[in-house]
């Protein structure tokens, strides 16, 4: 395997993109699931407040999504810019 400088950088950028997106997806996945789970519990207790609870769930999930989106941005930067 002959390794040149630019090839080495490109290779590690690809590997880094995979690791960034892969590990970055773990936290938001668990966190958003917990938010949605508790929303289901709250709707079970008070079904008449379903609209408010769904809205709050989606806002909370959108915020916990943010770190996943940071990972996606970094992964895409590594893929297309570096």
């Amino acid at each position: 395997m002959n390794i040149a400088g630019p090839d080495f950088i490109k290779g590690l950028a690809f590997l880094g993109a995979g690791i960034a997106m892969g590990l970055g997806a773990i936290g938001p996945g668990v966190g958003e699931g917990f938010a949605a789970g508790k929303a289901c519990e709250a709707i079970g207790r008070k079904p008449e407040e379903a609209g408010l609870l769904t809205r709050t769930m989606l806002v909370g999930q959108a915020v916990s999504e943010s770190t996943g989106i940071y990972s996606l941005v970094v992964a895409l930067l590594l893929l297309f810019v570096v």
């Binding site: 290779g11 997806a25 773990i26 668990v30």
Partner: peptide, 25 residues
């Protein structure tokens, strides 16, 4: 070339690790 090998390994790591958190969630 190193980049052709590591892109395939990166794909495996991305979809692999990426499945753990949402799976639990």
């Amino acid at each position: 070339s190193l980049s052709d090998s590591f892109r395939l390994l990166g794909a495996g790591l991305s979809s692999g690790f990426g499945g753990i958190g949402p799976g639990v969630g």
